[in-house]
């Protein structure tokens, strides 16, 4: 079944409601809207009835207002000021991230990878949390001390409601940002290699030297894979969701990582085998690599599974509860 503006409206209201009552309220609201459309002789899926559906949704009012009327009044930031609050948070978060990314690049370029990189990342998290706290307090105060404050929002147009976003395509922002920061740090680490390490002399150390030399030759591939992952995470954040493009890119990046890790571990074991090390050392290396490869393959398999799952119906995408033996 095709998703309609009514489904999008129900989703937009639901996003602003507590999880405990969301499904129930969404189900009732959707039925009410479908009833109202039917009474007016409108088919929500028909192209020629869209002006009528838009007029109906305008009567119900913006999703923020509808969600606010379900509120208990105890929220720290009420839904009326939530759009402005979110906008300020997004803009300040983007500015802070941009400034720190530039700072991180300058640090890596000028000093190589050292502890300063850790300082930049630590400072980024600190500033992000502080700005979040300050903005939240300011908006909570505005919300309470200026109850008649009218924040001028552009006239609400139901046609601009975002498309349905199934739960499987929703981003875990914390996870995505953590991966982005980790991969940027990895690019920094790999770019600053090889470090100037003086190895002691001796046959065993000569083998270690060979390993380091071979691994250094693989560095551009490691950098490329991390850079691709940085692009994937940035694209996910930009699009605000998982898409087929980011899923396929994740599959390819994971397969590339598996191949490279497998190859690198093969190189390490092959070079070190003539040395004096116990077989248990090689077994440890092999098992560590196998665990990492299995985890990475699991990530790729999960994305392939998501790509193969058929598109959910609007009811499934909205996560509506099953009631009365449906």
């Amino acid at each position: 079944m095709k998703e309609t503006l009514i489904d999008r409206y129900v989703q937009a209201v639901g996003r602003r409601l507590p999880a405990k009552t969301r499904g129930d309220v969404q189900l009732e609201l959707r039925t009410a809207l479908l009833d109202a459309a039917e009474t007016r002789g409108l088919n929500p899926a028909a192209e020629h009835d869209q002006p009528g559906i838009i007029a109906l949704l305008k009567e119900y009012g913006p999703p923020e207002g509808m969600a606010a009327s379900y509120g208990s009044g105890n929220a720290l930031i009420h839904p009326q000021v939530m759009p402005a609050y979110r906008r300020v948070l997004t803009i300040s978060g983007a500015i802070i991230t941009l400034i720190h990314l530039v700072g991180l690049m300058l640090v890596i370029r000028n000093t190589g990878f050292d502890f300063t990189v850790g300082d930049v990342i630590g400072n980024y998290i600190k500033v992000l949390l502080m700005s979040f706290g300050v903005i939240t307090i300011v908006f909570a105060v505005i919300d309470r001390t200026l109850p008649d404050l009218q924040i001028k929002e552009p006239e609400w147009d139901p046609a601009t409601l975002p498309a349905l976003l199934p739960a499987a395509d929703r981003l875990d922002y914390a996870d995505t940002i953590a991966e982005l920061i980790t991969q940027i740090a990895m690019v920094g680490v790999f770019s600053s290699l090889p470090w100037d390490i003086t190895l002691p002399s001796g046959p065993s150390w000569a083998l270690i030297h060979d390993v380091l030399t071979r691994l250094t030759g693989l560095l551009p591939w490691f950098i490329a894979l991390s850079a691709v992952d940085v692009l994937i995470q940035a694209l996910k954040l930009f699009q605000g969701r998982w898409t087929r493009l980011t899923r396929w890119a994740t599959v390819l990046q994971s397969l590339g990582s598996v191949f490279l890790l497998g190859y690198a571990s093969g190189v390490i074991i092959r070079i070190l085998q003539p040395g004096p090390w116990d077989d248990r050392v090689f077994a440890s290396i092999a098992w560590t690599m196998i665990v990492i490869i299995v985890i990475t393959l699991g990530t790729a398999a999960n994305q392939v599974r998501r790509l193969l799952v058929p598109k959910p119906t609007p009811e499934e995408a909205l996560g509506l509860p099953k009631v009365g033996g449906q």
Binding site: V25, E28, L29, T31, A32, D35, A36, T39, E59, Y60, G61, G65, M66, S69, Y70
Partner: peptide, 24 residues
């Protein structure tokens, strides 16, 4: 009564309540 039928019933008797008020 369900929400929409109740709204119509009330409106028919001169008590029109907006949906954003009635359901909550």
């Amino acid at each position: 009564e369900y929400g929409y039928s109740l709204k119509q019933q009330l409106a028919a008797q001169g008590m029109d309540i907006p949906e954003g008020t009635l359901y909550p």
